[in-house]
């Protein structure tokens, strides 16, 4: 029995991202493609997103010119590949407030948003610090926070304080404070509905960028693999590692059940296809009765 379908939807990409940004300490190891994605979860009468991407109007040109971010497409185009519209989305779990995760709330007019309260309160604190501590203020757009006011005012924003069970039936939110950002969180979908799920999926936001974060080379310490944090921690590497341990424990140490959304190699583990816009749709799992969006009819547009 599977309650939910989960798709990872690419909405733009950086072709050459330096590896040391993805895996801590991977200096001078070259570049790799970094897709920007959000996640669609559909089932039990709900459509939920994990993160909502960024708004191209605001940043597109700058990101394209300066950082090589290419091929941005709107949520309407991207979601149509799994037969949905932005209006269908009723819930959005924001893993953290970076502009590429929280920068497009406007495109989801019917969604109720969830974010960690600490992500907002510590951001306010960070913005009050002198310039020499500016590093802590990176990648969050005050305009996004202001749009958060719109949501909160309309009763469409819940500031979550810590963990939250059954935010939708069988879906839990877990905090990972002072890790990638001040108030990061990750999402656990218990797809069999059981408390001790044997069919759980974790949407990790930016806590995990790449398979190498969970199964990094352990040669240096004489073990097969070890956790190796992502390249950016506003909090600490230790807290990132502790969040990996909590995620892995939650899925009985089955690493493929932790989904890194910036990982191009998801395609090696899960069925996927390339859309007419040259963006990848990766199907993590299918709910009972749901049709595949990456095989059969849908796969006709596969460019590979």
């Amino acid at each position: 029995m599977s309650d939910y379908s989960i798709w990872v939807m690419e909405y733009c990409a950086v072709e050459n991202y330096h590896k040391s940004g993805i895996v801590y300490g991977a200096h001078n190891q070259g570049h790799k493609k970094l897709p920007y994605c959000y996640v669609v979860i559909k089932g039990k009468g709900h459509v939920a997103m994990v993160d909502v991407g960024y708004n191209n109007k605001a940043y597109g040109k700058h990101l394209g010119d300066k950082f090589g971010v290419t091929n941005w497409h709107s949520p309407r185009e991207v979601l149509s590949e799994v037969g949905l519209t932005p209006e269908d989305v009723d819930s959005a779990f924001i893993t953290h407030a970076h502009f590429d995760h929280f920068g497009n709330v406007e495109d989801f007019p019917n969604a109720h948003f969830y974010i960690q309260e600490r992500e907002i309160s510590k951001w306010v604190w960070a913005m009050s610090l002198p310039d020499r501590l500016r590093w802590m203020m990176i990648a969050v757009d005050p305009s996004d926070i202001l749009r958060g006011v719109d949501l909160a005012k309309e009763g469409r924003l819940t500031c979550v304080d810590g963990g939250m069970s059954d935010v939708l039936p069988g879906i839990d939110l877990y905090p990972a404070h002072d890790s990638h950002t001040f108030g990061c969180m990750w999402v656990h979908v218990r797809n069999d509905g059981a408390q001790n799920s044997k069919d759980g999926w974790i949407l990790a936001g930016d806590l995990v960028y790449d398979f190498a974060n969970l199964e990094g080379d352990g040669d240096v310490v004489g073990v097969e693999t070890m956790y190796t944090p992502v390249g950016l921690a506003v909090g600490s590497q230790m807290n990132l590692l502790l969040s990996y341990e909590e995620m892995m424990k939650t899925v009985d140490y089955e690493a493929r059940r932790v989904i890194p959304i910036h990982e191009e190699r998801l395609k090696d583990t899960f069925p996927s296809r390339i859309t007419k816009n040259n963006l990848r749709v990766t199907q993590i799992c299918l709910a009972d009765g749901e049709t595949s969006k990456v095989t059969g009819e849908a796969a006709m547009t596969d460019a590979e």
Partner: peptide
């Protein structure tokens, strides 16, 4: 003068 400081952004470390 940009609303987001992209220079250190997690997903923007690569030069075009």
């Amino acid at each position: 003068m940009t609303m987001v400081d992209f220079r250190q952004a997690c997903c923007c470390g690569a030069s075009a």
